[in-house]
Amino acid sequence: MKFKAMSLSVVLALAAPVAMGEASVEEYRAMLADKDANPGFLIIDKGEIYFKEKRGPKNASLEQCDFGLGVGKLKGAYAQLPRYFKDTKRVQDLESRLVSCMMDLQGFTEAEVKAKLYGDQRLNENNTQLEAIATYVAFQSNGMKIDPPLKHAGEKETLKLGEAYFWNRHGPMDFSCATCHAEDGKRVRLQTLVNVYNKQDIQKTMSTWPTYRVSHGVARNNQHRMWDCHWQMRTPDIDYGSPATVALISFLTHQAKGGVYDLPGMKR
């Protein structure tokens, strides 16, 4: 107790020039970093059940899905996404790949897969099966280096488009992603913002998605993060697994190359 009080005063002294809010925010973040307390693990377990469950008109599981390393090979697959897929002839991230596997293997239509994308935190809902499955598949790359391939022309083009789109200003707020995420030490209110051009910063971010979001009470994936930012920018809903989200995720993932996945993350 005494130690805790002392360490807090040290923190406060060090943070003296910064706003008082920073010290308590740091403590809060330290608590979020406690892996054993991460409810995301429960969602991963659920995701595994859904992944292996026979579902859809074709009554099949997702175990035959190829995430880039071969049919059914999950270990390390997320660490090498997004990538170009020959069968779909486009670059896909984890979630857009899941959508195509659910359509091909299980026989769902795109509309069926996308009918309910996210658990609604306002209604205290649990994660959707789609969210849980993505969290499970991503977790199979925990501890591995972020290493998206950049050989295929499609991968190179997607990366280029992703960066250009990152700077694209639209909507009634005139915002682009870069408005908030291209400088060090910036905050919206007290929420610190990742600088995508700061290697350490972006590695720390990308290596911890999917993440358990305490304020939502569920795990969230990159697609939700892309949607959420666009929603805050007051655009229409950006489509799940759309070319723009995949391009953005491709750009962000390449910026974070070499970081080590530390999953599941836990954030505000």
């Binding site: 250009a164 789109y165 694209n168 639209h170 655009t235 489509d239």
Partner: peptide, 25 residues
């Protein structure tokens, strides 16, 4: 590149109820 981005945006937002597509112009 701007033309490509316009194409990218057009392919990534779906019109429908509650979606004001004019905001993307």
């Amino acid at each position: 590149m701007q033309a490509k981005i316009e194409k990218l945006v057009a392919a990534s937002f779906k019109p429908g109820e509650g979606q004001d597509m004019s905001r993307l112009v």
